[in-house]
Design a protein around this nucleic acid. Structure first.
Lengths: 122, 122
DNA sequence: CTATGTGTTATATCTTATATATATCATATT
DNA sequence: AATATGATATATATAAGATATAACACATAG
């Protein structure tokens, strides 16, 4: 899976990294059991520091996207508690997006269409 | 409209401020033509620096939520270009939320329900 | 057993972002 | 004339982000 870092982005590198991996999982480019490169090798590939990658991996682990193991390295393993709990977790972020949408005159039907389109072609 | 700052939050104060004002507009607690407190008075009320409020106001202006005028101060005025352009703007943020949802097994029907609920009771 | 490669942790340094403190300016209002 | 507005500038302090080394415990390959 290709990961690209924009060094001119105002967004922190470890956040970019985390986001792209979440995207990769959503797109099924990354599946349960797949291994990610080791902290050091990915850092080397991207031209960033080891700790930056480590921070992204630690974040992904705490969010239940992967498991870190001394033996196997970083392995994708999406942990799903239950639907309500997971919905609750994305609620804050979604709420901000919806707030913007409402302010800008985007109807819920518009939002449905956008959501459907994303689910189709992710 | 009540604004509260969490000084222990990892989120920057000016971002908290910006977010709460966007929320206020979405909830129609703030409407076109309404005035916000001046930079200095709001800073004083919240116990933060003038520049922090100024930064939030400047951000809201650049996003088309308000107008800053020497005469009238900060006045809510939501600028809507056209639907497609506005959808495009929220697309990136929404995409990240949807990616998380897909990863965590939340269906688009679930998302519709959450969206509808938000539109009902914002 | 040795060497290598994991993730993990620790320390130090540098840069950038955030927040504050003052101060000044042009302008509009009272 | 006095006051208050947003806008701007400068300086300082703190926090976050990123890098550079180094070491540790553990697992595996040779």
């Amino acid at each position: 899976m290709l990961i690209e870092i924009d060094f001119n982005s105002p967004q922190a590198i470890y956040i970019q990294l985390r986001n792209q991996i979440v995207m990769g999982i959503a797109q099924e480019q990354l599946r349960d059991g797949d291994s990610l490169p080791s902290v050091r090798s990915l850092a080397s590939t991207l031209g960033v520091n080891m700790h930056t990658v480590n921070k992204a991996y630690a974040m992904l682990r705490s969010e239940g996207y992967l498991i870190l193991d001394r033996r196997k390295g970083a392995v994708i393993q999406v942990e799903i508690e239950n639907k309500d709990a997971e919905i609750e977790k994305i609620n804050h972020n979604l709420r901000m997006v919806v707030a913007q949408a409402i302010c800008k005159g985007i109807s819920k039907e518009d939002m449905h269409a956008v959501i459907d389109d994303m689910y189709e072609n992710f």
